[in-house]
Simulated assay, not measured.
Amino acid sequence: MPKPFTPKVVTANALLEGDVIYQTATGWSRSLAEAEVLTDEADADLRLIEAVQQVDMVVGAYLADVDTSGDTPIPTHFREDFRAKGPSNYAHGQQEALSNV
Rank of each mutant, 00 (worst) to 15 (best):
V58N: 09
V58Y: 10
V58Q: 13
V59P: 01
G60L: 03
G60W: 09
A61D: 06
A61T: 11
A61G: 06
A61F: 03
A61I: 08
A61Y: 04
A61R: 08
Y62C: 08
Y62T: 11
Y62N: 10
Y62D: 06
L63F: 07
L63M: 11
A64N: 03
A64D: 01
A64C: 04
V66K: 01
V66Y: 01
V66C: 02
D67M: 01
D67F: 00
D67A: 05
D67N: 15
D67V: 02
T68V: 15
S69R: 15
S69Q: 15
G70C: 03
D71F: 09
D71R: 14
D71W: 03
T72Y: 14
P73G: 03
P73M: 04
I74C: 01
I74V: 15
P75A: 12
P75Q: 07
P75Y: 05
P75S: 07
P75L: 05
T76E: 09
T76D: 03
T76N: 09
H77T: 03
H77M: 06
H77A: 05
H77N: 03
H77I: 02
H77S: 02
F78I: 11
F78H: 12
F78Y: 12
R79L: 09
R79G: 07
E80Q: 10
E80K: 00
E80S: 02
D81E: 12
D81A: 13
F82V: 03
F82N: 02
R83I: 02
R83W: 09
R83V: 01
R83L: 15
A84K: 02
A84D: 02
A84Y: 00
P87I: 12
P87S: 15
S88Y: 04
N89H: 09
N89M: 05
Y90I: 13
H92C: 11
H92A: 14
G93M: 04
